[in-house]
Design a protein around this nucleic acid. Sequence first.
DNA 1: AAAAGATACCCAACTTGCTTATGTATATAA
DNA 2: TTATATACATAAGCAAGTTGGGTATCTTTT
Lengths: 114, 114
Amino acid sequence: MSNNNLIKGSLQTIILKLLEENDKMYGYEITQRVKELTEGEIKITEGALYPALHKLEAEGMLTTEIQQVDNRVRKYYSLTKNGHKEVSAKMSELQSFVGNLQRILDPEWKPGLV
Amino acid sequence: MSNNNLIKGSLQTIILKLLEENDKMYGYEITQRVKELTEGEIKITEGALYPALHKLEAEGMLTTEIQQVDNRVRKYYSLTKNGHKEVSAKMSELQSFVGNLQRILDPEWKPGLV
DNA sequence: AAAAGATACCCAACTTGCTTATGTATATAA
DNA sequence: TTATATACATAAGCAAGTTGGGTATCTTTT
């Protein structure tokens, strides 16, 4: 992530959610997608991403598939069955955390507003 | 903190914001306020809180004032001038990060919705 | 009366999840 | 030919937590 050390632990959720929407992605693609979606505001570093991918794979959330594209190796990741389950768990965990944050930081806040 | 490792990095912001709203708070009071506001979902541990308070004080964001209440010592914290500045900085940093998170995790999301 | 829990502070060992820096390799643009 | 983009990876170090311990007073429960 670029210059913010905020909400550590959301990287896993980001990876899982993107893979749920895209079925199959490789590491570099994930960094670019996040950069796109946030207009360059969040940059996932490779030093954070690859270990996270390896960890999720070791935990049985992801499977990999190597592809050769233009003399370059790509490692595609996709969700396992457990991975699919994990997405919703992580998502509701994160959404509930963000909701609680809003309750603390913005006393005016009610669900339905940013 | 209860079961979420998501809070890392946002604890400082929470402390600063609560102090902006309440002018003067002591450590234990902060833990209770957060518990209240989140209906017990977020519990700030003392092992996290006190070092964070000491660090913010060392950085010149907070000043302290000891009070004796019912034979018990309370250490009240309040924002310094720099502390007041820091609140808005941290707040907009966090809000922008949360916005970016939504953009990544919920492609349907537009500012104005949760 | 004793034990448990709430109030109120603190510290230290440890773990986790990043950053920063480095390495390999190919292709393209300046 | 140097830098930038694509594409993978690892390792040292750091910051911010968790976990578990300690001290002390007051109140509630057994």
